[in-house]
């Protein structure tokens, strides 16, 4: 191939690097002898040679990938930092991380920034309604009520035996306590008011009084908290109604059949006896005694053990027990299924 001014550049680099064939080398040398300007150009070209430089990409670690890397947009260093904080780092990765920190101490700041992402719970935040979440024994299941009442009844009988006092004052179910006394051959029924405001009086006299029978004398003046309603001897009355228009109240008092021939130590007990006899006679004496015994037993239990157990009953107008509630520190129950408890039987 003939070397001319139109194609000599194709041969320059190979000529400089000594890569021309022997024949082409001779031809190119002849060309240079014939073209001194080209020879000058080649001499200048030989001076322009770049020196070797030791340039290294130091952060190769950023380019490294693991099996997890495809799911994570961060670089390898960030992945290592998180893995270490998560305690999810392999030994090899731990060595990589340590090497990075040794070679590039400034990268420790990256690790510190990931440490800050670790949440710490505020232990002062507490759930305050734990007791409402807890489950306790349910006492109102019927079979437990029966069991509880059996236990209670046994305890009641026990304490009644050891502490029953015939002189105990029983609760009565009369609507009011009426004390009777004999005075000048007249039966005087005295109503003990709960307070002076129960019946408001004007000028110490009842403003209005209603009687079922015209045989009753007018009442005497109100003295302290008592009003006396005087009957003639042997008069029979069913009830006395005393009303106070000002208070718009009426108090109904049952007059009990009164047997003056019986001998009692005092009229209090006489009245009490008559109250019970008339009010409860038709109901059956056993029931009354059982309830009274129960209350006595509860009182004695409380006195002996310094407890505050209570046994309360609700009665209807006929004196039948309608509901019972029992309360103690250990457990308590209420039931209006009295028949099932057998108390009225």
């Amino acid at each position: 191939m003939k070397i001319t001014k139109h194609n000599y550049e194709e041969f320059i680099l190979d000529f400089i690097e000594g890569k021309l064939s022997e024949n082409d080398n001779i031809l190119f040398q002849k060309f240079l002898d014939s073209n001194p300007d080209v020879e000058n150009e080649i001499l200048n070209f030989e001076n322009v040679i770049l020196p070797e430089e030791n340039i290294v990409f130091e952060e190769k670690y950023l380019l490294k990938k693991t099996e997890f890397s495809q799911n994570f947009s961060g670089n390898y260093l960030e992945e290592l930092c998180i893995a270490d904080i998560e305690k999810d780092i392999t030994d090899e990765q731990k060595k990589d991380l340590e090497n990075i920190f040794t070679e590039f101490p400034e990268k420790i700041a990256v690790y510190d920034s990931f440490k800050k992402t670790k949440l710490i719970p505020n232990l002062e935040i507490k759930y305050t309604n734990k007791e409402k979440l807890k489950k306790k024994h349910v006492l109102m299941r019927p079979n437990f009520v029966y069991f509880a009442s059996s236990v209670a009844a046994s305890l009641i009988l026990f304490f009644s035996i050891i502490g029953l006092n015939k002189n105990e004052v029983y609760k009565t179910r009369s609507y009011s306590q009426i004390e009777n006394r004999f005075e000048n051959n007249k039966t005087v029924f005295t109503k003990t008011l709960v307070s002076k405001t129960d019946l408001q009086v004007s000028n110490n006299k009842l403003e209005k009084t209603i009687y079922n029978s015209s045989k009753i004398d007018n009442p005497t003046n109100v003295i302290d908290n008592q009003i006396d309603i005087v009957l003639r001897k042997d008069d029979n009355l069913d009830k006395i109604v005393v009303s106070s228009p000002k208070l718009q109240k009426e108090y109904e008092h049952e007059i009990l059949n009164f047997n003056t021939k019986e001998n009692f130590e005092d009229y209090n007990k006489m009245a009490m006896h008559q109250s019970e006899k008339n009010f409860f006679e038709k109901k059956g004496i056993e029931k009354i005694n059982a309830w009274n015994v129960a209350q006595v037993a509860v009182n004695n239990y409380n006195n002996l053990t310094e407890n505050n157990v209570s046994l309360d009953g609700k009665f209807d107008r006929d004196g039948d027990l309608k509901a019972v509630s029992f309360n103690s520190q250990v457990f308590g129950f209420y039931t209006n299924k009295v028949k099932k408890l057998g108390i009225n039987q």
């Binding site: 997890f68 994570f72 961060g74 960030e78 992945e79 998180i82 904080i85 920034s113 992402t117």
Partner: peptide, 20 residues
């Protein structure tokens, strides 16, 4: 399990950038 790990890593990356 891998989804959990991915979400944790992504979450921490976001938190780190936000804090920064």
């Amino acid at each position: 399990e891998s989804q959990v790990k991915v979400y944790i890593y992504r979450g921490r990356k976001f938190l780190q950038q936000f804090i920064g």
